[in-house]
């Protein structure tokens, strides 16, 4: 053979420079065996393409479109946070400050990597993790669970203290439920999960009833004592949620 097999294949694949192509073409003109080899390779390429190109015309199975869609930014973000929580609490079932801190770290990472907010303004990604802001921060600061508008977009569930003596509160915002603890820098959101209904005003749902398991589990893991009653909640608020023991 006047040219190597690899050179001939590169010719078939269109990988040669114009000069190299001329050399191969000259060799082909002079060598019937090389021409046969070229035909074989072209027939092979044709066989492969006929065998597999028909896949392109098949309808895309629903599960594949779903795999792309199910990571739509809003849900993906919830999913990620929930996953981080689950992993954290699965490896550290101790209800200690350390567990809460590592949960915060995991969430911070998750949020930092892939934050896409479902609702725009209630959360801010921060180096420490996810912080409540705007209306949600205001609600967490002021709203008493015993005294809230049943149609409010943002609602408070339970208030409790974690292992560090910080006050933590569960909340609902449109489409999500979560728990945040009052730290010096503000309300640190330690868990957030999608709620089934994205319509918070639904009359079929009560405040606090719409609490995903992930949040309930997170709260159980964080609580260092019973939930505050209405009177203790008011007292804590009026003192500005100052942490202590």
């Amino acid at each position: 053979m006047t040219v190597t097999t690899e050179k001939l294949l590169a010719y078939v694949d269109g990988e040669l420079s114009p000069d190299e192509m001329k050399i191969v073409q000259a060799a082909l003109a002079a060598d019937p065996e090389l021409r046969r080899e070229l035909e074989t390779q072209r027939a092979l390429t044709h066989s492969l393409q006929s065998a597999f190109d028909r896949v392109l015309d098949e309808p895309i199975p629903g599960r594949l479109s779903e795999a792309v869609r199910s990571r739509d930014p809003g849900r993906s973000w919830h999913h990620r946070v929930t996953e981080a929580l689950r992993e954290t609490f699965a490896v550290r079932p101790l209800f200690s400050g350390a567990a809460a801190a590592s949960a915060a770290l995991a969430l911070g990472l998750a949020a930092g990597v892939f934050v896409a907010q479902p609702d725009g303004g209630d959360f801010a990604a921060d180096p420490q993790g996810l912080m409540a802001r705007a209306e949600l921060a205001k609600t967490l600061d002021r709203q008493l669970a015993s005294d809230q508008d049943p149609n409010a977009a943002r609602k408070i569930g339970v208030t409790f203290r974690n292992g560090n003596g910080e006050y933590c509160r569960t909340f609902n915002v449109p489409g999500s439920a979560g728990v945040a603890c009052r730290e010096p820098a503000g309300w640190h959101v330690l868990a957030l999960a999608a709620t089934q209904s994205s319509r918070p005003q639904s009359q079929y749902r009560m405040a606090g009833a719409d609490m995903p398991d992930a949040i309930r589990d997170a709260v159980t893991a964080m609580m260092a004592g019973p939930a505050l009653n209405a009177e203790a909640e008011k007292r804590a608020r009026d003192r500005g949620w100052v942490a202590g023991n």
Binding site: L56, I60, S76, V115
Partner: peptide, 25 residues
Amino acid sequence: NVVVRQERDETVQRQIVAMLPRLRR
């Protein structure tokens, strides 16, 4: 950053959907 990431993710999703037939092949 949130908005930028969200836009990027949506663009990526559209590109992946368009790529599914080739990936299946």
